[in-house]
């Protein structure tokens, strides 16, 4: 592909109901509306509203984005074992694998970045449903695909009124976990 210049592909995968579509949307908004780049988000899903396999692709580029889907994924987030098994093949050589170690037992790669997002969400934020935002914070920190301020702005503009503080801290929980992982390496 010749439009790879500045093209960065992020695939967020897991089970339906984990909030990955929203996470993808926030990432695309952070990159586009706030960082001033171009972004395209696509998704694929089955008939189930909850469970099943779910994925969303976010393509970020300085230039025009013709092809909307990810083909040579730069970073894959897997929030469930079936999603990891399905999408690991799409990760390009040298690409980054991030897994929720609370839900994925066999990352299958030694260099996988394993962080227990769901457990962190439960313990630090009080509810599992913040796992997507925790993971988003970690992915942003690990990849620097979007600037931190932009991600915060995007998240805070979208989440329901009254939940800004908890979402903000969920982002930070993810960021700190990513830093600790990198330091511990």
């Amino acid at each position: 592909m010749s439009e790879t210049k500045g093209r960065y592909e992020i695939r967020l995968s897991g089970a339906g109901g984990q909030g990955l579509m929203l996470a993808g949307k926030l990432l695309a908004e952070a990159a586009s509306v706030y960082d001033g780049k171009n972004a395209v988000q696509t998704q694929s899903y089955g008939p189930e509203a909850r469970g099943g396999k779910s994925k969303t692709d976010v393509v970020i580029s300085d230039g025009e984005i013709d092809y909307p889907k990810a083909t040579k994924v730069n970073v894959l987030l897997a929030m469930s074992q079936p999603a990891l098994d399905e999408y690991i093949g799409s990760l390009q050589p040298g690409g980054m694998l991030v897994v929720d170690s609370y839900l994925v037992e066999e990352p299958g790669r030694d260099d996988a970045i394993a962080i227990p997002f769901t457990m962190l969400a439960l313990e630090e934020c009080g509810r599992k449903l913040f796992a997507n935002v925790v993971a988003l914070g970690a992915v942003a920190e690990l990849t620097q695909a979007v600037t931190w301020d932009s991600l915060r702005s995007a998240v805070l503009a979208r989440v329901p009124k009254g939940t800004e503080k908890i979402n903000d801290s969920a982002l930070d929980v993810g960021r700190q976990a990513a830093r600790q992982f990198l330091e511990g390496k």
């Binding site: 780049k37 972004a39 395209v40 988000q41 696509t42």
Partner: peptide, 9 residues
């Protein structure tokens, strides 16, 4: 479906 569900800048 691609265009309908795609989010774009």
């Amino acid at each position: 479906e691609v265009i309908g569900h795609m989010r774009e800048t």
